[in-house]
Design a protein around this nucleic acid. Structure first.
Lengths: 336, 336
DNA sequence: ATGAAAGCGCTAACAG
DNA sequence: CTGTTAGCGCTTTCAT
């Protein structure tokens, strides 16, 4: 149950350098008040013995824990989503530059989470794990929720303004002259799915453009349902001139279906996606889409959480990041 | 620099439950010898105080560290590769089931790595960071290298048998009757790139099939170079009847080029890829490819490393996992 | 500038 | 079955 070889401790270093352990501790922590002679001896000993301070002991002694947890929902497929990758990249990168240890957790939301070994926790979305956030909060661990506006929890959050995203899409299509605009929404049980839809719908209302029920298809971000939706829309006698698909995957599948049916994009049909995922690059026609600053959001989450952990940021964080329109080739003004 | 609120300790629990801290420790660790009455009181106190044991203290006291590090090279684009995702998934999943903390590190290979806060480290490939492995090893931390055969280091490793992968590809194409087989290799400075090429080449030799220099193109796994290669091959007067591309990305790009030039696949050209990446699913013709058990490799790495850390596995681990042929539609027998 | 000593929170003998 | 006690390796007063 234990490591076979005994680890080198600060005491071994002290012995070899013929100084007290206090002095060794001082050089480890770059305390200036150490004679250069002693410092040299200690450094030599450290190098010779290949000594590495025991982080657990340091944390216990100081009470400071320079690590943060990243909790990701574990539903199937998440790791093949652009979303998860960008978050991991962003969090990972920020931790690296701030010299924080990143403790990575995949969770189904049910197992209790012991957060006492991290200074703070980042929850990458909360699907079925509000309990975990509450319990972490109760244990006194600062929590930062990503991608969810959680005003009913005592957690800080930083999210994408999905309503704005929906609005931007609608706005762009309307400005092009479209009046028959359909939407393939995301899962409306998720905040992102719901908000994109709401933002889109409200903007249509504001601009006095009707959104008949037949122009609304509730999807789930999958290609399969996008295909269903597209086929349904194409059969309508009053075919929409534009479609807002709430994910790039869905938008790309709509393009596929359109090509199969000989519907020209963007001449006969405009389409805007959501995400700006790399998949866009390999599409036959450049997809106009809404880009979410995922990487930046993740980085920012780490930075703010770190400040909170260190008591340098006492206000609650409630940030909404604006998604941006990326214009490529999949939209045009409607004919006529 | 410190947490504002004072954490609840085992002592607070003991006080409230009116027992000794030892008893509290016993119930935390599920030691059976605790009267049910006391156990109940302690559990009540723990729940009431929302007590969570301090992991650093536990680790310091036991000397056991139930966490492992995952070190990933940080070169641009790695996180958008199928490779990285599968490794993260596999390692993450295994850690979750074994109740191990996963400490995630992105590294350029130059910063020294303090591995004293983890029981063992998994290096996801080693590009420029042999130094880090050596230093971790020197500090007494068990190291498991993934995807690299590193017999010259004292580390354990578990890798994909890339030579076998190259052989399998060659074998399959030859069995189909091809004699003019070209290869677009990966980066030959990486072990994977080199070994796939070597396995392929040797199999051709064994089967007495010649591999002229004009049939070899050193690529870098990118679409760009695959396009160059394909264009070059298509201009040859002695056009190959089959191409082995050492990554799916490259294979898919070859298919694209072929389609643009009106070369029919698989009738006029057979092509096999490497990876079995999800990108295959969206290709116009199903790509026959070599699948690497990345997820399994990552899981296995965690399991073995954990045994090593716990002294339950003393032999050096030197495993090679076999890649497997996945037949889809991109290959056929040559005409004539 | 340096060292002795008292913890940090927990576990693990060892008694009882 | 329960409590006392001695560390785990390091930081941090407090003297010197």
């Amino acid at each position: 149950m234990d490591k076979s070889q005994k680890r080198i401790s600060i005491e071994d270093v002290a012995q070899r350098a013929k100084v007290s352990i206090t002095t060794v501790s001082r050089v480890i922590n770059n305390v200036p008040t150490v004679s250069s002679k002693n410092r040299a001896r200690v450094e030599e000993a450290i190098a010779f013995l290949k000594f590495k301070p025991n982080v657990s002991a340091q944390r216990l002694a100081t009470g400071v824990n320079n690590s943060i947890g990243l909790v990701m929902p574990g539903y199937p497929g998440i790791f093949h989503s652009f979303y998860a990758i960008e978050l991991i990249r962003g969090v990972g990168h920020a931790c690296e530059t701030l010299h924080l240890d990143l403790v990575f957790h995949i969770t189904n939301g049910f197992n209790p989470l012991n957060t006492s070994n991290v200074g703070g926790v980042i929850f990458a979305d909360i699907i079925e794990n509000r309990k975990q956030v509450e319990s972490a909060l109760a244990a006194g661990t600062p929590c930062m929720v990503i991608n969810n506006k959680v005003d009913d929890l005592d957690a800080d959050y930083i999210a994408i303004d999905n309503k704005l995203g929906g609005k931007v899409a609608a706005d762009y299509l309307i400005s092009l002259g479209h009046k028959e605009i359909a939407i393939i929404s995301g899962n409306l049980n998720t905040q992102a799915g719901l908000f994109r839809f709401e933002g889109f719908k409200k903007e249509l209302e504001n601009r006095k453009i009707s959104l008949p029920a037949e122009y609304v298809f509730e999807g789930d971000y999958s290609r399969r349902c996008a295909r269903q939706a597209a086929e349904k829309f194409f059969e309508l006698k009053n075919r929409p001139t534009a479609i807002f698909a709430c994910s790039d995957e869905m938008a790309l599948e709509v393009i596929n279906v359109a090509m199969e049916k000989g519907v020209k994009i963007p001449q006969e049909l405009s389409i805007v996606g959501f995400d700006d995922s790399p998949a866009c690059l390999y599409s036959s026609v450049g997809l106009t889409t809404i880009k979410q600053p995922l990487f930046e959001m993740a980085e920012q989450a780490v930075r703010l959480l770190n400040q909170i952990v260190n008591g340098k940021h006492t206000d609650k964080v409630k940030e909404m990041l604006a998604p941006k329109l990326v214009v490529r080739e999949s939209c045009a003004s409607p004919k006529g």
